[in-house]
């Protein structure tokens, strides 16, 4: 008994452990903001991505060009630069100067481009005969998409969508650069005050890992359910 408490007591004699222990509520609050930014960005990205994916496959050249330009730009430039450009260079002109909002818009636009490609691939993965069967019954293109193609594409799209969710969650650490007080930003502040690099960044890394691993397990579960259902 005394041996166990002895170990705990000796841990508290380590400066780095004290720092992490005292700041844990502060870090967890930051982790929650990370999750918020990710969830809101993914929600925005899913709406954008659905349209980007559909437009990409549209017969209308203008819609197709808009979608290609959007997807190419946001996949072809660093998210870090997009965050800076939008927050300092574009959004202020639209009356947005709150960093949290900028962060969601930047991450949402970025994930929308990736999700657009996921949606396109999902639609193209549905057997060509499905569209032909729907059209041969007399459905127009929109009816065939809504009732036949998209309900099948969504099952194909779920696993890569969860991967995108996880990737974006990690990438939101970049919004610390515009002073959104998420997990990485808070790690930076605590580190700057204490210089306990290994303890502070180790703790931050473990918190990220716990979140992404949980999401990954959730994804595996959903994938299994879809495979049987």
């Amino acid at each position: 008994m005394s041996g166990f408490y002895g170990i705990i007591d000796s841990l508290f004699e380590i400066r780095g452990f004290q720092v992490v222990y005292e700041n844990m509520p502060y870090f967890l609050e930051g982790a929650w903001i990370t999750i918020e930014v990710t969830a809101l960005s993914v929600a925005m990205g899913m709406v954008l991505g659905l349209f980007a994916g559909l437009f990409r496959l549209s017969k209308n050249r203008i819609l197709r060009s808009i979608s290609v330009a959007y997807i190419d730009f946001f996949r072809g430039t660093p998210l870090f630069v997009q965050i800076l450009l939008l927050h300092f260079g574009v959004l202020p002109y639209f009356g947005v100067d709150e960093a949290f909002t900028s962060a969601i818009i930047a991450c949402g636009l970025n994930s929308g481009a990736y999700i657009g490609e996921i949606v396109r691939a999902g639609i193209q993965a549905v057997d060509k005969g499905q569209m032909e069967a729907a059209r041969s019954l007399g459905m127009n293109e929109r009816q065939a998409m809504t009732y036949i193609i998209l309900p099948q594409a969504y099952k194909i799209v779920i696993p890569p969508l969860i991967n995108e969710f996880i990737a974006l969650l990690k990438d939101t650490s970049l919004v610390s650069t515009i002073a959104v007080a998420e997990l990485t930003y808070r790690g930076n502040l605590v580190y700057a005050n204490t210089y306990q690099a290994a303890w502070v960044w180790g703790a931050v890394a473990i918190i990220y890992f716990v979140i992404t691993k949980s999401l990954g397990l959730l994804g595996d579960y959903v994938e299994r359910r879809l495979a049987t259902g």
Partner: peptide, 28 residues
């Protein structure tokens, strides 16, 4: 689309809608 409603087509590979039951395939 109007004219196709007057023509039924049956395909070599059936092309049934896998996410719908037999009944729903027919009623949709």
């Amino acid at each position: 689309n109007k004219v196709r409603q007057k023509m039924g087509m049956v395909f070599q590979h059936f092309n049934l809608f896998p996410h719908k039951t037999t009944l729903e395939n027919i009623t949709i």
